[in-house]
Simulated assay, not measured.
Amino acid sequence: MHCMDGGYSSINHWERESGKRVDDWSKTVDLRNGSTVTEFILVGFEQSSSSTRALIFALFLALYSLAMAMNGLIIFITWTDPRLNSPMYFFLGHLSFLDVCFITTTMPQMLIHLVVKNHIVSFVSCSTQMYLVFCMGVAECILLAFMAYERYVAICHPLSYAQIMSGQVCVKLVSTAWFFGLINGIFLEYMSFRNPFCRDNHIENFFCEAPIVITLSCGDPQFSLRVIFADAIVVLLSPMVLIAISYARILASILGRVSSSGRGKTFSTCASHLTVVIFLYTSAIFSYMNPCSTHGPEKDKPFSLLYTIITPMCNPTIYSFRNKEMKGAMVRALGRTSLAKTESV
């Protein structure tokens, strides 16, 4: 009995020193003894002070609100304004819808964990979040490639544009992006959770990031990481090849036959899309195309924040500020809203 009392005293002393909960500690011990993980603990904000977490919460809430408002406005105006009834804005509306879904899979959980002490997520919640991140991310990569192809058709084949990019074709292209996102998400989900988890349940990130979760599984995680690397080559580089080919032909076309003023206008319409592509692909490549090196928090967190928060927020801003038609549509939408409020009063 004396030994048991001493053991409890040492645990209480450890709890006071580290700030951890006793049940978290006992779960970790059980995992090392071979038990199966039923929940994970996100420790991305654990080392931050209360004042730092409050500042991060205010910043993330502002970014999330801005992303939801801007993307929501673009969805509304591209689907309701008759002047934006073209394939480019059809794709842009779906891109904003993907961004809304993408940021909502991670941001609300981050905000909650910044204000509560309990950072535990269930196994099902973690796997569901990871699947949605995979699904939305893959669908967005493919959709960006189709948007580059649409720009190529509009610039290089303007007389055949309406026929090539018909409404039926646009719907098929968007459906293809969603289909591959759903299927690829299932495959990556299986590869991430194919092994049981018995090492540890602490995830050194803000959400359930696949490379970090895989390293917590039993056995050698390198096979799953290599498969994800190979999948990333197909999912990321294949659309990148289509984007590169499209813009190479656009560049050759406009340099050969368009005046200087026309070149500037054409480059301006393509610059927004290229900027979005660079943001998304850079962060995704650094996060998932790294099969052999370890995925530590110092390396993964910045890129995780980039493609889960910054990119969905920047996409509507980039497209809106660089597109006169989008600016005009936003002014008209806000004007109709103000007029409706005045009439209601």
Score class of each variant (00 low, 15 high):
residue 183 I to G: 00
residue 262 G to C: 06
residue 144 L to E: 14
residue 196 P to Y: 04
residue 224 S to T: 00
residue 14 W to R: 04
residue 35 S to M: 08
residue 99 D to H: 11
residue 124 V to F: 03
residue 308 T to Q: 03
residue 175 S to I: 08
residue 92 L to Y: 02
residue 11 I to P: 01
residue 200 D to Q: 05
residue 102 F to N: 13
residue 193 F to D: 00
residue 160 S to H: 11
residue 233 I to C: 15
residue 94 H to S: 06
residue 146 F to P: 08
residue 343 E to R: 14
residue 304 S to R: 00
residue 73 L to N: 04
residue 291 P to T: 02
residue 107 M to I: 12
residue 61 L to Y: 09
residue 225 L to S: 01
residue 122 S to I: 04
residue 138 V to P: 00
residue 279 F to D: 04
residue 198 C to G: 15
residue 235 V to T: 05
residue 19 G to V: 01
residue 270 C to M: 06
residue 338 S to N: 06
residue 11 I to V: 15
residue 2 H to D: 09
residue 276 V to A: 13
residue 200 D to L: 01
residue 158 P to V: 05
residue 28 T to Q: 14
residue 307 Y to L: 12
residue 124 V to N: 10
residue 22 V to D: 04
residue 192 S to N: 04
residue 66 L to F: 06
residue 137 G to T: 00
residue 59 L to C: 14
residue 157 H to E: 15
residue 103 I to G: 06
residue 223 F to W: 12
residue 304 S to Q: 07
residue 276 V to S: 15
residue 134 F to C: 03
residue 40 F to W: 11
residue 105 T to N: 11
residue 89 Y to F: 15
residue 276 V to F: 08
residue 54 A to R: 12
residue 244 A to V: 01
residue 270 C to V: 10
residue 63 L to F: 15
residue 272 S to G: 10
residue 93 G to A: 01
residue 44 G to C: 06
